[in-house]
Design a protein around this nucleic acid. Sequence first.
DNA 1: GATTGCACAATTATATGATAATACATACAA
DNA 2: TTGTATGTATTATCATATAATTGTGCAATC
Lengths: 252, 252
Amino acid sequence: MSVGNGLGDNSVIEQVGLNISSAMGRNLTYGMLDMLGKAIVTGQYDNQVFPTEAELAKKYEVSRSVVREAVKMLGAKGLLTARPRKGTTIQSTDRWNLFDIDVLRWLLDRKFSLNVLRQFTELREAIEPAAAALAASAHSSEGLAAIKAGFTRMEAAERDEDDPLEADIAFHIAILQASDNPFYAQFRDVVTTALRTSIRFTNRFKGRTASLPQHKAVLNAIANRRPSEAKAAMAALIADVMALIADAERSG
Amino acid sequence: MSVGNGLGDNSVIEQVGLNISSAMGRNLTYGMLDMLGKAIVTGQYDNQVFPTEAELAKKYEVSRSVVREAVKMLGAKGLLTARPRKGTTIQSTDRWNLFDIDVLRWLLDRKFSLNVLRQFTELREAIEPAAAALAASAHSSEGLAAIKAGFTRMEAAERDEDDPLEADIAFHIAILQASDNPFYAQFRDVVTTALRTSIRFTNRFKGRTASLPQHKAVLNAIANRRPSEAKAAMAALIADVMALIADAERSG
DNA sequence: GATTGCACAATTATATGATAATACATACAA
DNA sequence: TTGTATGTATTATCATATAATTGTGCAATC
C-alpha cells in the first residue's frame, strides 16, 4: 500500500509509515493517543492545519475507528475539537486540561523548562500548606499512619535504604489524601508526575535529601492537630524548593 | 424494533428506548457522553455490572461507534475503563478527574451537593488568595483592566443593570488569569461551573449581592501591587462564602 | 489432590464500506 | 449588496465482519 499521497513526503518516517504497534500503549488506540498528544503538545502541528481523520489513518496505518477514538479522547482532555466540514483543530492552550496526567506528562516531557517547574511550584505553595492544615484538623488514624510511613521511608532513604524521590512523594501524597477533601486529593497524580519529572533538575543541585527536620515539623504539627502550625511548616518547606528553582533560573 | 431484551424492564423509559437525539448535545456521541456521565456520577450503576457496549447500543438505540467513542471520552475523564472479556467498568471515584468541567458539573447537578460545594470552597480558600497575590505582583495592564471591568460589572449589577452572578464570576476569573500562571488560570472553567451551580444554594439565604467593599479591597490591593494585602482581602472574601455554606449545612 | 495446559466463550479492539449531517465556499439571482 | 441555491469536504453515524484478549472450566498430568 503506497503512501506517496499529495501530502508531501518530508521525512523518512513518513515514507515508511509510522508503525504505532501496541508497544506504545496497551493497544493501537492508546498508542495513537500518546503519539498525537505528544506531537500536539510539542508543537509539531503549530504552523499547519491539523490532518483529517482519513489522513491520519493513512499516515499511521490504522483504521479510522482508531483515529476517531484517539481524537475523541484528546478532545476530552481539551487538546482537540472536531467539526464536520471544518476538520479537526487544536484548541488554544488555555483549554488544555493541565491537571490531566497525560497532558501534564507530555508537557513536562518536552524540552523541560524551569519556567513550568516554577509555575507548578507556585501552585504547590498554595495547595500543600492548605492541605496540611486540613490534614491536621481532619486526619483519620489511617491518614496519619500513611504520613508517618512516608516520613519513615524518607529516613530510610537517608540511610540509602529507600528511594529518596519515591519516599518524598509518598509523604506529600499522604498529606494530600489525609486532607479528606477530594479536590486536594486530586492533586495526587499531578504532584507525583511533576515531581518525578522535575527530579532531574533538583537532583542537580543539592546532593538531594529534602530536609528531614522540616518534614518532621510538618508531621508533628499534623499529628498534634495544629492546623496553622502545619500550614506554616509546609509553606516553609516549599519555599525552600522555590528558592532552589529561583537560584537555578538566575544561574541558567 | 422491539426492546424487550433480557435486561429487565424496570422503567417506562427503558421500554420505549432512551432516545438521546442530538438535542442533548451537539450530536449523538456528546448526548451519550452526558447521559452516561451523569448516570455514573449519580450512582445509577452502583450495585450492578456496567453494561457492555452492545447492551448500551441497544438500550439507547445508537450504533456501537457512538457508544465506544462516548466510553472512550469517559475513560479520558477517569470515569471508566474497558478491557476485553472483562467489559467496561466504573473506576473508583479517586480516579475521576474532578477538574474536568463535565465531571464537576455532573457532580454538582446531583442532589445533596452542599458537601461538594463546601469541599470546593475549601479549595478556593487556597487558590484564590494565592492567585490574587500573584496577580498583584505580576499583572499586566490588560489583566488589571479585566479585573476592573469585572468590578464595574458588579457595581452595575448592584443597580440591577447586570447579572450579579456573571459579574461576580468575571471578577474572580479575571484575577485567576491575571496571575500569569497557567495552573491558576486553569481553574477558570472550574470556578465558573461551580459558582454557576452553587448559586442555587447561596441565593436561598441573602438577597445575595457579594460584598462590594470587600471586592473593592481586593481590586485596590492588586492595582497597587500589594501581594500580601491582596491575599488577605481575597481570603476574607472567601471566608464569608464559607460561612454561608457552613450556615446552610447546619440549617439543612 | 494440586497444578498445568488447553479449548471455549465473552467482550473489547480493529477494519472497512456505506450513508447522513454539517457547514464552508462559490456561483448565481434579486 | 444581500440573499439563495448548490456543490463539496469533512466529520458523524451505522452496519457488519474479523481479530485480539483474557476469564472460566475442563481435562490431562504429575
